[in-house]
Simulated assay, not measured.
Amino acid sequence: MTLTTLVGEGWDDYGLVDSGGGRKLERYGPYRFIRPEPQAMWEAALPAAEWEEADGEFIPASDEDGGGRWYFNKPVPTEGWPLGWREARFTASCTPFRHLGFFPDMAPVWDWLRAQIADKPDPAFLNLFGYTGVGSQALAATGASVTHVDASKKSVAQARDNAALAGMTERPIRWIVDDAGKFTAREVRRGRRYDAILLDPPKFGRGPNGERWQLEEGLASLLADCRRLLDADSHALFLTVYAVRMSALAIGELLSQLFADLPGKVECGELAVREEARGLLLPTAIFARWSR
C-alpha cells in the first residue's frame, strides 16, 4: 500500500508561520499563538524576536496528561473571534485543551470529501466526533444533508452557533449529542445508509452517559459499523488518527479488509501543514480513506 501525504496550505484566516524547537507559531486571523509541537524537532526559521511578538503561548504541564495553560502577552478576546474557511464560519478561542476550537489541518480533508460527493444529487453525509462543526458546514455548503454527532453537549451547541454565524441555520443538518459507537450501531439496526462518512476520533473520551471511548479498543468495531452504513453507491470514508502509537499502514490495512467487497480504493498516509517560513511540511496526524 502506497503512503500519501495530504498537505494543508494556509489561507487568509490561518497559517503555520514557523515551527521548530518543539513548538509552532501560527496565525489565527489577527492573532498569533505559540503551541507545543513535539514533531517540530528542527530549528525555527524566524528570529526569536518574531516569536516573542506572539499574542499568547500554551505552556504544557510537566505531567503527561495533556494539561497546561495559556499565557498571554497581549489582550485576546476571551469570548473568541470569528474566522472562516471557504463558506464555513466559526468562532476561534483559546481553549483549555491547547487548540483554538477547530483543527486547521483538516482543511484538505474537507476539500477531498467535497470532491468525492460533487456529482452526487442530495448526498447524505455522516460526521462522527463532529466537534464544533466546521466539517459539517463544509459538506452542508455543497448541498449535502449532514448528520453531526458528538458526545459533548457543549461542542454541539457551539457547532450550532457556528452554523448560525455562517447563515446555515436552515441547511439540512441534524445535530446529535450521542456516543459515536452507540449512534452508529443504532443506525445499522435502522438500515440507514450514507454517501460519505468522516471520523475524527480522539485518543480517549467519554460519551454523554459516561460511555468510555479508547481508540485502540473501539476503532475496529466502529469502522465495521461504518462500513455497514455504506454500500456500492456510496462515495467515501475518511478516518484521521492523532496522538497514538499507531501506523498509517495499520489503519490502511484495516480499511482494506473491511472494504474488500466494495469497489474503489483504499489509501493511507499522513496529514501535514505547510509552513509559511520555508515551505517545510509539519506532520499532524495519520489517515486512511476509502473512495469509490
Rank of each mutant, 00 (worst) to 15 (best):
L199W: 03
V241D: 08
V241W: 14
S234G: 03
V273T: 12
A236R: 11
V241E: 13
L237G: 13
R192T: 05
G264T: 09
P263K: 05
V266G: 00
E275V: 09
S234F: 07
F204Q: 15
D231L: 04
C226Y: 13
Q257L: 11
S221E: 13
Y242M: 15
S234Y: 01
L229H: 06
V273A: 01
P263M: 12
R206M: 11
W213E: 01
A272P: 03
E217G: 04
R212I: 15
A236F: 10
A236K: 12
R227V: 07
C226H: 09
A196Y: 05
Q257P: 00
G264I: 02
R227E: 07
A224G: 06
V241R: 08
V266Y: 00
S256K: 11
L230C: 03
L237D: 10
R192L: 04
L258A: 04
L223E: 10
W213Y: 13
R212A: 07
S256W: 10
P202K: 03
Q257F: 10
L255W: 11
E253N: 12
T240V: 15
L230V: 01
I251F: 10
D231W: 08
C226F: 04
L255A: 09
A243W: 13
R278F: 04
D261S: 05
L222I: 14
G218M: 03
G264W: 10
L271M: 04
W213T: 04
R212N: 12
L199S: 04
R245A: 11
L271C: 05
A224N: 12
D233G: 13
L230K: 03
V241G: 08
L239C: 12
L215M: 07
E267C: 02
R193I: 00
Y194N: 05
C226M: 05
E211S: 07
L239N: 06
M246D: 03
L199E: 03
L249C: 01
E253C: 09
Q214D: 14
L230H: 07
S234L: 11
G207W: 14
L237K: 11
G264A: 07
I251P: 00
E275I: 01
L239R: 04
L229D: 03
A272T: 08
D225Y: 06
N209A: 10
L262N: 02
K265V: 12
R228V: 00
A250V: 00
G269P: 02
I197R: 07
L222R: 06
A260Q: 13
L249M: 11
F204L: 09
V244F: 04
C268Q: 13
T240K: 06
I197N: 05
I251Y: 04
D231P: 14
P202T: 00
G207F: 11
D233L: 14
V241N: 09
L262S: 04
E253K: 11
R228M: 06
A236H: 14
P263R: 10
L254D: 09
R245C: 10
R274D: 04
R228N: 09
R278E: 12
R193W: 03
F238P: 06
L254N: 04
L271E: 01
E275L: 01
L258S: 07
P201N: 05
R212F: 08
F238D: 03
D233R: 15
L229M: 02
R212T: 15
